[in-house]
Write a protein that binds this DNA or RNA. Sequence first.
DNA 1: CTGTTAGCGCATTCAG
DNA 2: CTGAATGCGCTAACAG
Lengths: 337, 337
Amino acid sequence: MRRASIRQVAEAAGVSMSTVSNVLNNPDVVTVDTRRRVEDAMATVGYVRNGAARQLRGAPSVTVGCVLLDSANLFYAQVARGMEDRLADAGCMAIVCSTDVRVERETRALQMLEELGVRGVLLSPVSSRLDAAVELAGRGTPVVLVDHPGAGTRLCAVTVDDVRGGELAAEHLVAQGHRRIAYLRTEADLPSLVGRAEGLRRGLAAAGLDVPWALVGVPVPPPAGVVEAEAAVARVLAAEPRPTAVVCFNDMAAVGVMRGLHAAGVDIPGGMSVLGYDDVVFASELAPALTTIRQPTHELGRAAAELLLAEGRPGHRHKEVRFTPELVVRSSTGPPP
Amino acid sequence: MRRASIRQVAEAAGVSMSTVSNVLNNPDVVTVDTRRRVEDAMATVGYVRNGAARQLRGAPSVTVGCVLLDSANLFYAQVARGMEDRLADAGCMAIVCSTDVRVERETRALQMLEELGVRGVLLSPVSSRLDAAVELAGRGTPVVLVDHPGAGTRLCAVTVDDVRGGELAAEHLVAQGHRRIAYLRTEADLPSLVGRAEGLRRGLAAAGLDVPWALVGVPVPPPAGVVEAEAAVARVLAAEPRPTAVVCFNDMAAVGVMRGLHAAGVDIPGGMSVLGYDDVVFASELAPALTTIRQPTHELGRAAAELLLAEGRPGHRHKEVRFTPELVVRSSTGPPP
DNA sequence: CTGTTAGCGCATTCAG
DNA sequence: CTGAATGCGCTAACAG
């Protein structure tokens, strides 16, 4: 069964195709009377506009690709929701793709989205190799980077000041008296994570500490979820001398760390302070309530969508919107033992 | 700048358009030699297939609509991820739309998706009025319901046995000695919620309790998030006689309730037991760890996508896949005071 | 104000 | 194996 086209509507209403087209696109150019007739006809034949045909004719696409590391991750889920909301306001819809930090998945997603002819792509890139994204943009599909500065690429970007986030973490812990701090790191060279590490170093250095000694990086293997973070606890406890605080790359990892610490019988924050990142919605309800660095997720998504929608409008230029993270002090951090 | 079409590829390669089309769709029907030439040409002119044109010609769409209550809600985020994964396996992509339980938003989303010509729609409906979905399906866009049985609609559906979930909750609490139980209810008549309420009633009745007395419904206004749930605590504490347990419609609501209880100085579970629903990833890390009913989110999404992809294949018939929830006992429930 | 026509990019004829 | 022709549904430009 093929859908009714503008043609059968025209027949049913006894007018020409272009009249039907007009009631659709230039309603005021057609008599109230005929318009009514056409609208009735559309209803009776069950007419539905054909997006593919419109797009082929050059109408702007109503779909936007959202290529994220993991849409089920609460952080990205909220970012995606922000995108979705802003896009909906503009009559657009989000096609969301999760890459799980895999280049091939990212490449494939970008390819498919380009073939679809999306209005643009909001991308939280898997790594700093942005060639594919730059080429995509070069071929005419606007790209806005999310949580990645994209320095020197001429791509618009929405970021959070990760270095500042790292500093915030370092300052807070140093102020509490910590002198040796573990931080969880993943294999991927996500710029947001390297930024935070840099911030940690700066913060420690500013406090006059010997950074190489004061900061111990603990690797967490992919997919770097709760389970992997929990397993990493053994490695932080084994470090000599033992660190008195651990900084996590997100709140889910902090959940894992807390779990591991509980299992090992280490008190939080008495025996070890734990610092999260993101301030997801349940961070305040953990045991103990999690001290963390808040990122404005929803706004991040909205801003990214905003930037994308602005592309192609007259006076458009490369732009980076940067948000500032915020320290939220709760009970999982305290003075060292 | 318009994208290169099959035509410029043909020119660049010195062959006809149909030859190019063939290397794309019937690679073996063309000489290895010419194929190479054409492929080179595609690379140099930067050719990208035009999805709109293909779809117009009748190619099956690669997009599927996922219309969910709230994609940022951890439960749906995971369901969506399951959908996305299964769809990706089939070379498809998910267009996700959140309705926030608003009919107009649902209607609008379905409309837009139909115009786009999506391969189908995975819908967690706002209410039991499924007319729009049924009509959509009638017009040829397959619809699979998620978390809604869709009785009598001939629509495929993926559900969780909500009545059983409610029973599980009732049985557990009654076994602990509770005789008067509050349950949080929302305004929306979501079938999953009415199912659970029914299960609660059955469970209590089976234990020989006077249901109208034993079960007190406490309304939570939209958007029924953490904040609203927290505010509802006052109402459960004010009920006379005071209930000794409260069952929540999801884990986020439980977070709110726990927060409210803490604020009111009520011990959990000493003064009040709290039961969640969903078993989201952080439920085990709350203070106290949350007793809850687990739903298989990812599988739910996968199964829905599976059903959708199966539609239109030869021997297809109406089907409902039903999953079974599971009680996860932790520390937020215990004997009444 | 309404009707006619051409062509968007592609895949599928059919004739060479 | 290749080339030319047709039409998918729609809209913009033009003719009436």
